[in-house]
Structures are given as C-alpha cells and as structure tokens.
C-alpha cells in the first residue's frame, strides 16, 4: 500500500520544509495516515522510526523500502500502544539507536463504534488505552528526549469526531477530544522547552477505518463534504509535515482540521 502523494510532494523538501538530520517517530505507521506521514517525513529528509504492532515482517519491509526510496535511515520498531511497558521500550530503543528525538506523530488509533448503552467495558478500555492513554504516554516520553536537544515538534492525530462528536462514536469521540485537551495543556507546559504541540483533526479520509461503512453511510458522509470528495491519507500527511516543519515554528497548541470543510 503506497500512499499517492501530490506531484510536488515527491520532491525532496528544502528550506523551511526540510527535516534533514531530524529523527521522527510515527506511531501506527503500518498503513493509512501513519504510513503516508512516515513516507512524507522521510521524503523531507527526516530519519523515521515506523511503529506498529501487528505485522513485524511487513513493517520491516516497508521501512526498508522507504529507506531505499529516500536514502534516509528508516527503522521499524514494534510496540503495542495498549501496553505501557512496550511504549517505554520503544523510546528506549529510539534513544539507543539515534540518541535523540525531534518529531513525534502520535497516530495509532482504534475505532470501535457502539451506541450509548451498548458500549462494552472491554471496548471502552481498549479504545481509551490506545487512543488517549498512549497519547499521554507518548507525549511524556517524547518530551523527555526532546528536552535534551534543541526542542521538537509533536503532532497528535485527533479527528473531526473529537471536535464535533458523532452518533455511535461516543468513546472514539471522547478519546479524540481528550487528545485535544492533551495538546492544549502540553503546548503550554512544553513551550518553554521549545517543544511545539499541535493536533490535526482529519475528516473523512480514505483509509481502512472507513472501509467497513455501508454504502448509504458512505454516501451520506461524502455529501457532507463541501469539497465534494473524501480526503487522502497523503493530504493529512502534508498538514502534519507543515506542523512539524520550521514553517510552523510559531504555531503551537492548535488543532488543524483536514476535512474538506466537512459538516458533522
């Protein structure tokens, strides 16, 4: 699965877009927005750690292919975002390998739909662990590595559902709204350490997360998008590149919608 990038994006970034020498960690980098982001950051010159947890061989192959394509070091590291010890181990591995971290993209996420009154406890725990608790842990650990260097930039992948809410997605919405609270607080706390923290809130993006929807719901969602189409993962990656680059050097504590103007 190779994200299709706009023509201009296949060129290496230069000037304030360039990320040469920086080390980036992208969680949930095996597919969708995470993969598109990992690829975009590598094309911009960053050394990229691709995190995943279900397919070690596939992720390693993807990292190797990305390294061959871009000429920058790309490394696959497995860690389940539902397991705090594995998250801590991930950062120890980043530290041991690169000795630094400049960019975090907290992307790993889980979507489990359920109407209020039908939310199973184990689903509630699972979604909150992966979407919110792991976000907090990633910010904590990334900040500690970034504080040692020249600062850094974090982008947390929230959702339009976290901003607007959506019927049948109360837990997912709460977890993604929680990430926004985390961004707002972390931006204040980490600003003095030259660490910027922002979020993107993707709308209806062509990823595996929407492929389970029935045709009627899919059509309804698309009809609510003024730009008239679903977004592409690479378009979210472009917004993330902006936020982690020096182009956004004075931007922190913001939530950038990448949603084609979608109305929920």
């Amino acid at each position: 699965m190779t994200a299709t990038l706009p023509p201009s994006s296949d060129h290496r970034a230069s000037g304030p877009w360039a990320l040469d020498g920086r080390v980036a960690l992208v969680t949930g980098a095996g597919r969708g927005i995470g993969w598109a982001t990992a690829r975009r950051l590598a094309l911009a010159g960053a050394r990229v750690v691709l995190n995943g947890h279900t397919d070690p061989e596939g992720l390693a192959a993807r990292a190797a292919a990305l390294e061959a394509e871009t000429g920058v070091r790309c490394l696959a590291l497995m860690a389940d975002m539902a397991r705090p010890a594995e998250i801590a181990g991930l950062y120890r591995a980043v530290h041991a390998t690169f000795g630094r971290l400049d960019i975090l993209v907290n992307n790993a996420g889980l979507l489990e739909d359920a109407r209020l009154g039908m939310i199973a406890d184990d689903s509630l725990e699972r979604v909150m662990q992966v979407n919110l608790h792991a976000g907090i842990r990633n910010v904590q650990l990334a900040a500690r590595l970034m504080r040692r260097g020249q600062g850094g930039a974090m982008v947390l992948v929230s959702s339009i559902v976290g901003v607007r809410g959506n019927a049948g997605q109360a837990v997912y919405a709460a977890s993604k709204a929680g990430l926004i609270g985390l961004v707002l607080s972390a931006a204040k706390e980490l600003g003095p350490d030259r660490i910027r923290v922002n979020a993107v809130a993707p709308g209806y993006i062509e990823t595996d997360m929407i492929r389970h929807l029935d045709a009627g719901t899919d059509a309804q969602r698309r009809a609510a998008i003024p730009l008239g189409r679903a977004g592409q993962a690479c378009e979210v990656a472009e917004a993330i590149l902006f936020l982690v680059s020096d182009q956004a050097a004075y931007v922190t504590g913001q939530v950038l919608g990448v949603d084609g103007g979608m109305i929920l």
Binding site: A88, Y91, R92, H95, G99, Q140, R144, L145, R147, R148, P192, D193
Partner: peptide, 21 residues
C-alpha cells in the same frame, strides 16, 4: 514540578539514560 522535570532532563542528558516514570 517544573524544576523537577528540568532536573530529570539534565540527569538523563548527563548520564545518557532514560529513567522510568
């Protein structure tokens, strides 16, 4: 609490460690 985190960052940098939370 702010100084504590600065101290942790300085200790980690000085000894090239990653402390547990």
């Amino acid at each position: 609490s702010v100084g504590h985190m600065q101290l942790v960052a300085a200790i980690e940098a000085e000894f090239d460690l990653m402390l547990e939370t």
